[in-house]
Amino acid sequence: MIVDCAHYRDGRRQHEGPMPLEEAAARCAQGGFVWLGLFEPAPEELATVREGFGLHELAVEDAQAHHLRPKAERYEDGTELIILRTARYDDDREEVDSGEISVFLAEHFVITVRQGIASELAGARNRLERSPELLRTGSTSTLWAILDQVVDSYAPVVTELERDIEEIEATVFSGTVAPTERIYFLRREATDFYRVVHPLLAVLARRLQPGRSAPELLPYFRDVHDHLLLVNEEVAAQRDLLATVLEANIAVISVEQNRINLRQTATMERLTIVATVFLPLSFVVGFFGQNFGWLVDHIGSLSAFVALNVGGLLLPCLLLYIWLRRRRARPAPPVPGANSAVRHTPRAPMG
């Protein structure tokens, strides 16, 4: 779909309203340059554009493919293809949306092919039209306007990612376990965003080489390059910080798991002691609860009851108590070699 098409000459837009592709291609021979903007065009529409402007078939294939990294390619006819990745932070989903812009740059035309919703270029066109001194430098001025808007759109993404990281960081370093999935997702987003930003440095560095851009545009390209360097450093720092936060969260999870294990161990120890105490008692009670004749004939007085029944209950408890005290007071066996002195063999004097 054609979003906008305009012919620029002497720093001014030469017409208003829609322009057919045939007319746009014909205006390339009238001086100045044509800027054709397309949004998610169909293959048939791109084929028509290729025929009208004489684009290289490999360049058109690249414009239709999805790229993970920005790149710049120059073809035999002098046409350049610059692939840019765009980014936008979605507040509702707390995710980063990405898009792609393919720029066909030649002396007499500029064709931009946008993919994805995060690739708006109306602001770049309007800003450039308000700067006739830049438009007079030629079609390369459009590349500066596009790069400037794309790089400026990275700053809000960095800010929002920083806010999300600070929230996770505050949770982890307060001793509370944070969702590991959220940390991993943020790290993946920061890594993907780094792949969007970092390769663009090489693309901008080529524009700063002698003869690649008009002298009037060099300060503007350097300004965009400086902004991109800052974004690149911040994104790299965010990736490293998220790796540290992920490790810290794993450590917090380990500490919390150890606490749970200690509580479970203490509970099991108490239950074991109770079971150990009641085991001999249950045996004694069960033994004396049998209806043997000897038991019935000989336990007929209070003294016999106390001696055989109550005493039979207290004696196992006393023996168990003495055994537990002696076991707790017994020192731990020494670890072989733990306290042995390290013997140093004197070295023979050299020479």
Score class of each variant (00 low, 15 high):
Ser340Trp: 10
Ser102Ile: 00
Ile146His: 02
Leu200Met: 10
Val49Gln: 03
Arg206Trp: 15
Ala65Leu: 01
Phe288Pro: 01
Val157Tyr: 01
Val60Lys: 00
Ala341Arg: 13
Arg9Tyr: 00
Arg188Tyr: 04
Val224Arg: 11
Glu234Ala: 11
Tyr220Met: 12
Pro219Val: 11
Leu281Ala: 07
Asp92Ala: 15
Ser254His: 09
Ala304Glu: 15
Thr191Lys: 05
Glu167Tyr: 04
His298Tyr: 13
Ile146Arg: 06
Asn126His: 12
Leu313Glu: 04
Ala155Tyr: 04
Ala65Gly: 01
Phe33Glu: 07
Phe278Thr: 05
Arg328Lys: 15
Tyr154Pro: 03
Val231Lys: 01
Ala338Asp: 14
His198Trp: 09
Arg259Lys: 12
Ser282Tyr: 12
Gly312Ser: 10
Ile253Tyr: 10
Gln64Val: 00
Ala237Leu: 11
Arg114Ser: 08
Glu16Ser: 15
Gly31Val: 09
Asn126Phe: 06
Ile253Ala: 14
Leu318Phe: 05
Glu120Lys: 00
Ser153Pro: 05
Arg12Tyr: 00
Phe278Asp: 01
Thr244Trp: 01
Leu201Thr: 02
Phe53Arg: 07
Gly52Pro: 01
Phe53His: 06
Pro18Asp: 13
Ser131Asp: 11
Glu133Trp: 03
His108Arg: 15
Tyr321Leu: 10
Ala72Cys: 02
Glu181Leu: 05
Gly300Glu: 14
Pro316Cys: 12
Leu242Val: 13
Val274Phe: 14
Ile82His: 02
Val231Ala: 13
Pro346Glu: 13
Trp144Met: 04
Leu228Val: 11
Gly300Met: 06
Val235Thr: 10
Arg114Cys: 14
Glu94Trp: 09
Pro18His: 13
Thr171Lys: 05
Pro179Ser: 06
Trp35Ile: 00
Pro349Ser: 03
Ala214Ser: 14
Asp297His: 14
